[in-house]
Design a protein around this nucleic acid. Sequence first.
DNA 1: ACCGTGGCCTGGACGC
DNA 2: TGCGTCCAGGCCACGG
Length: 272
Amino acid sequence: MPELPEVETIVKGLRGKVLGRIIKEVQVLEPKMVINSDPFRNKLKDRAIRRVERQGKAIIMQTGQKAYLMVNLGMTGRLIFYPDTAPVDKHTHVLFSFSQGGQLIYHDQRQFGRLQLYEGIEPEQIPFVMGLGPDPLDAGFTWQRLAHLLSKSRRAIKDFLLDQKRIAGIGNIYASEILFHAGIKPLRSANQLRMEEIKRLRQAMQGVLRAAIEHRGTSFSDYLDVEGKEGNYKHFLKVYLREGEACSHCTTRIVRTKLANRSTYYCPTCQK
DNA sequence: ACCGTGGCCTGGACGC
DNA sequence: TGCGTCCAGGCCACGG
Ligand SMILES: [Zn+2]
């Protein structure tokens, strides 16, 4: 899906477009995208969007006292705001209309995403959120903290980075990119990294994720932000989707392998 | 507890 | 034109 940088971009976009707006009507065109779609529609009617936050790759919108709408975008989920009337196609699954005008749509070609309303609990009590590890962009995410997390896992470092219970927000694009920037092979065991490698890894996480946010995320086929615009970080990808191309640093051909059934890209020369 | 795998979906690219 | 195969930003339920 949209990973941390894309979700962060969407969250900022939502704050600009829908914060303070009141939901006049919710139309659920594909009920299986929404958990309990009938109460979902009724309970969101006439509620204001009070806050918009990111937790890992999930979007949390506060719609009342202890009422939170969580959106998981899956692989191809989009939230797009239209100031007037939103266009609807066969992948438009939910439509929010606002009293002040404008519509927000949830669009998802592959339908791996989910929308769910939680009531009577704070966001930290949502089961999905409770299962998330620390956010790599938090000030408290020091290399010592990372070292401690790494020490508890013998898995390949690439798998470790994808595990949302250990660290929240990194997905398949940025796992490969981060490891390239850190100069670490994806198959290395998490608990066998040396201190300098751990420090480089943390630097690479923050550097890559922050740069990707600056460029509004990565679009290669489906991802669009709240205004329907692509992210530009694809121009800065060093290894992801670049199998067979020359490494920008050493000209060795980029290799693709499978880890946990997901493509993993790396430079066999630059990454040790 | 840990790990890996397969399933959920649609559609674009490519080879025959 | 049409197949079959592989590929694609995620997550969860299963097994061993
Ligand atoms: Zn290289």
